[in-house]
Design a protein around this nucleic acid. Structure first.
Lengths: 195, 195
DNA sequence: GTCTATATTAAGATAGAC
DNA sequence: GTCTATCTTAATATAGAC
C-alpha cells in the first residue's frame, strides 16, 4: 500500500528516507567514490551495519539516492511552452545556486559516471538522453516550422550551458550564471525562433 | 640546467615523465579519489614505494600531473583574433573527442575539486579564472566598441558550453558536439558581434 | 633509485546476538 | 531493526636493505 505507510513498515520507510537524506549530502560533498558508509551512518545516528540493513550495499544506496531524486523531479510538472521552458531552465540555475549540494551531486556523479564501469554509468546515460528529448520537444514548438535548425543539437547546447555554468558557479560563487544564461537565450531566440 | 638533462638526473626526469603519463591515465579513468597509487605503479612497472620516491604523496602526484599539463598548454601559442579563437575553441572540442582521457581528467577533477577540501580546489579556481580572462580578451575585440554586451558573462558562457558539451560526448559518443557548438557561435556572432 | 616489508588506517561487507 | 564484532581487502605512507 504505497502512499500510506502504517504498521511496522512506517518506521522503516521513514528511516530509509533519513538515510537517503544523509547519503545525498555525503555523496554531494565527496562524490560517489569519496563518500563512505561510515559518514552516512554517523549522520543518521546509526552503525554501518544498520545502514546496510536498509540498503544492501553502497552501490544500491547510491542508486536509491538517484532514483528518489528522479521520482521527486517527475512529480513536478514541467512546462511545455517555450517561454515556460526557458523560465524553467532559468529556475534550475537559481535552484542550483540555492541548493549547491544537489547540483554538486549531479555534476560530480555525472563526471565520475563517464567511466563505463561506474555504478551509475547507465543511469546518467539514460538521464541525459531523457533530458535532451524533453528539451528538444519544447524547442521544436519555438522553432515552429523552420526545418533548417537542428533541434537536437540545440537541446544538447542548452543542457551543456546549464551544466557548465553551474560548475563554474560552484568553483566561484561570484560568477553570475543568470547573466550568461540570458545572453544565450537572447541570442538563440534572435537567431533561431520562428518569425 | 633545464632542457638538457644529462648525467645522473637524466634517468630520473625520464622516469618522472613516465610516472606522470601513467598517473594521467589512471586519474582520467577513475578521478582523483578513485585512483590508486598501486595502479599507477603497476602501469609504470614499479612498486608503490618507487613512485613515492619521485613524488612524495598522492596529492603531490596529482598536482604534478596538472602542473605538467599546464606547462604543455602554455607552450602552445593561443590565437588572439576572434575567428582564430573560435577555431581554437572548436579545436578543443575535436581534441577532446580524440583524446577523451584528457578531457575526462579535467572535467572529473573540476567537479571533484568543487569541494573546498579537495587537493586541487585552488588549482581549478585559478584555472577557470585564467581561462575566463583569456576568452574575454579575445571576445572584446569581436564586440569591438559595443558597450552593451557583458564580455565576462559571454566568456563564462562559452566556457560552459565547451565543458558541458564534452561531458555529454563522454557519456554518449553519438552526441555531435561540433554541431551544437556551431549553433552557438552563429547565434552569438549574429547577435553580439560588432557591425 | 628501486625494492621488500611493514605500519597504519579505513573501507565495504557479513554473522550473529539482542 | 539495530548493534557489536569481525573478516577481508585495499589504500597511503614509511623504514631500511640493496
Amino acid at each position: 500500500m504505497p502512499g500510506a505507510p502504517r504498521g511496522p513498515y512506517a518506521k522503516t520507510a521513514a528511516q530509509r528516507d533519513r538515510i537517503l537524506d544523509a547519503a545525498m549530502q555525503v555523496f554531494a560533498r565527496s562524490g560517489g567514490r569519496g563518500a563512505s558508509l561510515r559518514e552516512v551512518a554517523e549522520r543518521v545516528g546509526m552503525s554501518e551495519a544498520g545502514v546496510l540493513h536498509h540498503f544492501g550495499s553502497k552501490r544500491e544506496l547510491l542508486l536509491a539516492v538517484l532514483d528518489r531524486y528522479d521520482r521527486q523531479e517527475a512529480a513536478i510538472d514541467h512546462p511545455d511552452t517555450l517561454p515556460g521552458n526557458a523560465a524553467y531552465a532559468r529556475d534550475l540555475l537559481t535552484r542550483g545556486a540555492d541548493k549547491p549540494g544537489l547540483f554538486r551531486l549531479l555534476i560530480t556523479l555525472a563526471a565520475e559516471a563517464t567511466d563505463p564501469d561506474h555504478p551509475a554509468h547507465q543511469y546518467f546515460v539514460d538521464r541525459y538522453a531523457r533530458t535532451a528529448d524533453t528539451f528538444a520537444a519544447s524547442l521544436r514548438s519555438a522553432v515552429n516550422g523552420r526545418t533548417d535548425v537542428d533541434i537536437e543539437a540545440l537541446a544538447h547546447l542548452v543542457i551543456a550551458v546549464l551544466d557548465g555554468l553551474q560548475l563554474q558557479k560552484l568553483l566561484n560563487d561570484d560568477v553570475d550564471v543568470l547573466r550568461s544564461f540570458d545572453l544565450l537565450t537572447q541570442a538563440l531566440i534572435n537567431t533561431y525562433a520562428a518569425p
